[in-house]
């Protein structure tokens, strides 16, 4: 597939041609699939994709911001949607370049893709999953190296949110209770399972971060479940 290096100007041109823009007109979708690896910790895309830490990305093109029912968007993203923002090439490109420049209090903990080519390739990949729903292909399974080995019994533990609230005071010295972030990600409103998987990935030292590895190291399976239960519902 030929590489293109579209600029915002050429985006505007193709936008003017209507919503029928195809992935190959945007960038290199195969390369975008590789880049998507960094997003797959939080976002699913492809047939059967569901909301995780972030909303699923099927049908993102043409969708209003903050529009998936049941997903706990940040107030900022919900407001952007209410103000009429829709996801098209231009808005998606701006959001991927610097998420907090477009939606200042978004909970998406991602610094952005400074290279226009990277964004174009990523968006070419995502465009594939914005076809008519019955045409959405299965996404390639992404084998993530940082996933922990987890007994299903650990995932099934029902966390005690009251205990989680106590334990959370160790987290909130750095992670803000209102979900705000700036250098340290917000951790509220994650699905409990994603929270548990992330903490065990630190505990097993598969995710690299010395503070988090140390904090997770002394949390029992029950304590991790308790924290997951507490933060999953913490909605300031």
């Amino acid at each position: 597939m030929a590489r293109r290096s579209p600029t915002l100007a050429s985006f505007a041109l193709v936008l003017a041609a209507g919503a029928a823009i195809a992935a190959e007109d945007i960038g290199d979708a195969d390369r975008g699939a590789e880049l998507f690896y960094d997003c797959a910790g939080c976002h699913e895309v492809g047939a059967g994709a569901v909301n995780r830490v972030g909303p699923h990305l099927n049908g993102i093109f043409g969708r209003r911001a903050g529009a998936i029912e049941g997903y706990p968007y940040s107030k900022a993203m919900a407001r952007a949607g209410a103000d009429g923002m829709e996801w098209h090439l231009d808005t998606l490109d701006a959001y991927l370049e610097n998420p907090k420049a477009l939606v200042s209090r978004t909970r998406m903990n991602f610094d952005g893709l400074p290279e226009a080519q990277d964004r174009a390739d990523m968006l070419a990949y995502l465009r594939i999953f914005s076809a008519n729903p019955r045409d959405i292909p299965e996404a390639e399974p992404t084998a993530r190296a940082d996933l922990p080995d987890l007994d299903p019994a650990i995932l099934a533990i029902e966390g005690d949110p009251e205990y989680g609230e106590y334990l959370s005071s160790e987290c909130t010295t750095c992670h803000q209770r209102d979900g705000g972030d700036g250098g340290i990600p917000g951790i509220i409103l994650w699905p409990a399972e994603d929270f548990v998987v992330a903490m065990h990935a630190y505990k097993q030292k598969k995710r690299p971060h010395p503070v988090m590895q140390m904090m997770a190291a002394r949390l029992s399976d029950e304590e991790i479940a308790a924290l997951a239960a507490y933060f999953a519902t913490l909605n300031p």
């Binding site: 909130t172 010295t173 750095c174 803000q176 209102d178 705000g180 972030d181 700036g182 340290i184």
Partner: peptide, 10 residues
Amino acid sequence: LGWYQGITSD
């Protein structure tokens, strides 16, 4: 910088 925001709001 994130920690400073976190601890001061805590």
